[in-house]
Amino acid sequence: MNELLHINSTSMDDFITAMTTEDPLSLLPSSTTEEDYDYDKFADMMCDRESVRNFRGNFEPPLFWLIAIIGGAGNLAVVWIYLHFRRRLKTMTDVYLLNLAVADLLFLVTLPLWAAEASHSWIFGTALCKINSALYKVNLFSSMLLLTCISVDRYIVIVQTTKAQNTQLKRRHYSRLVCVGVWLLAVVLATPELVFAEPAQAESMTYCRMVFPANVGNRTKILVLSLQVSMGFCLPFIVMAFCYSVIVAKLLKTRNFQKHKAMRVILAVVVVFVVSQLPYNAMLVVEVSQASNMTVTDCKAVKRLDVARQILKSIAYMHACINPFLYVFVGVRFRNDILHMLQCCFCIPTQTKKPPGKFRSPLSSTRATVMSDSDTSQALSL
């Protein structure tokens, strides 16, 4: 009790910073200098978060492993198809989809380590803590930016058809440069993780978290969260909403019988993106507000926010295993390639092709998905 009475105002400000770090379990280093106070013990005395840690230990590991297995299988299949059928890398969207699958795979690699941390503790050291945290952020930003690029390319192909056909080769060359730029920007945006991520002690458990210096913790945390919300959600959402709304308006003016399928795919893409990403990013905005002026001080309310954050974060992570089914496997050509892959792996006999009897229109023969280019301007059908 005497120790608490001697905490000066500076230490109290620093404690507020520690209580509002990126994760509720994030704590500042447990030294006893003027700059760094033993906030682990102080935080437990103010608000016991043992129930939150127990919830996370039971909830996250099985879900993270499920996401990693399903998403890994789906994205590996996408990479295999693109590398095996080189002809597929002939459009900008194909290049973006391949990079998106790689980004999702690298993101999914981090989930088993987070699952192990939630179950037992962080036992992998400081270097792997920094690498794993940075890898997570690199692929979070790259995935969102690549989804944005896909929506822009679909806008060009469907809305600006003539321009897309006349500049197809040039656009394919630019797509590679755009992908390089996306990865470089994602690495830059993940720099805070390389700098500040390190193992932090909380009672008998160790967690890999962002540990900010006491003198700049609040400002740095607000900046990091603001970058994640703006670049990881707001910018992609604004661009996707504009592109797909214009595409839908274009489709409504056509008389193509395939437009309804195309619109369903677009609707699914937008709905899944909003449902999976909006709640979690809204929670990050709450964290920014909490870091700015400590809006929530009641211990029970804080713990409810902690649990809600864990659930919404897991929902946002599911996007990595849904992407292959939303953007790739909806296409007939890709489903045929998946069947061919299974035939090769399990020695399933191939079916004999039917002779071309009836005349088929170019649209029905290409059967291009709304997420893949077609040699024609009507790249809409499934």
Rank of each mutant, 00 (worst) to 15 (best):
I7E: 13
T10H: 12
M12R: 13
E22D: 13
L25I: 13
S31I: 10
E35F: 06
Y39K: 00
Y39R: 01
D40Q: 03
F42D: 11
D48R: 04
R53T: 12
N54I: 15
R56V: 09
G57S: 05
W65F: 15
G71T: 02
G74F: 00
R87Y: 04
R87N: 09
Y96Q: 03
N99K: 04
V102S: 01
D104N: 14
F107L: 12
F107A: 09
T110G: 02
A115Y: 06
Y136F: 14
L140W: 05
M144C: 08
R154D: 07
V157D: 15
V159K: 02
Q160P: 10
Q168Y: 12
R171Q: 15
R172D: 05
C179G: 00
C179M: 01
C179N: 04
G181I: 05
W183E: 09
V188T: 13
A197K: 00
E198A: 14
P199M: 02
S204V: 13
A214D: 07
R219V: 15
K221V: 12
P236R: 01
F237T: 04
M240I: 11
A241D: 01
S245P: 09
A249E: 13
K253E: 01
K253D: 03
T254I: 10
A262M: 13
V269L: 15
V271C: 07
M283K: 01
V285T: 00
V288G: 07
T297Q: 08
C299N: 02
K300F: 10
A301F: 06
V302L: 14
H319K: 09
Y327V: 09
V330K: 08
M341E: 02
Q351V: 10
F359W: 11
L363G: 10
R367L: 14
D373K: 05
Q378C: 12
